[in-house]
Amino acid sequence: MTEQTNKSIKIEVNQLDFFYDQKQALNKISLEIPEQEVFALIGPSGCGKSTFLRTLNRLNDLIHKTSLKGKIKIDGDDIYHSSIDVVQLRKSVGMVFQKPNPFPFSIYDNVAYGPRANGIKKREQLNAIVEKCLRQAALWDEVKDRLDDSGTSLSGGQQQRLCIARVMAVEPDIILMDEPTSALDPLATLKVEELIHELKQNYTIVIVTHNMEQAARVSDKTAFFLDGVVVEVGETDQIFTNPKMKETEDYITGKFG
């Protein structure tokens, strides 16, 4: 808690509204997400936490009839400003999805996908990136002898770590995780959580989770979402041990959700 003061703000969200057609999904969200921390978003399903996550890399742009008001700044740049290149933005803001979505080609090609898109062609260079990222994702030892096997042949937990390695290969500063362990068994979940712990030394991580123990285990800060509003935000310890708002307390003690 004491180191918090010397960390700079990576993502700054100011009065963010978001609409699907006429329906408002996010209402006046204001948050500050510090660099190199794990920031958890919790709340019942449909509360807007995934929608919020997808505004951070502008993935919601792909959905028909959505609109947005307010500002999101990353390192001081307004990411919805017309001068912003969405492609560049998404290189800096990686994303891991709820359901592992490896591409239907080899493990190697999955990790090399991003670097190749950025024009890296040299085999040695790609080899190095693939090995580094798979090691960082704690997958290297399990797959180093079968890099040519299809990514879809791995187990669910391995697939998710492959997707994390795939994101790291693009060298983002921020990684968004949308309930990354909800489709995994407890053992695989544990591995991914350990990985998240490692990753926060180099990345800013925003994670949406349904699982409150997980939020308590992995995150430094937590925001509690309800019906598109941030009810409470603070240090994870404080949110879970001493919530200020009644709704937060009801949710974390399992009264609803």
Partner: peptide, 27 residues
């Protein structure tokens, strides 16, 4: 072609055309 694969590719900071060329068309 499943949508999560498109999103997965675009989220890695690839252009639309690159995603089509490498993911969508082959599938």
């Amino acid at each position: 072609v499943p949508n999560p694969l498109r999103e997965g590719s675009l989220a890695l900071g690839t252009t639309r055309w690159y995603t089509i060329k490498k993911i969508v068309l082959p599938l």
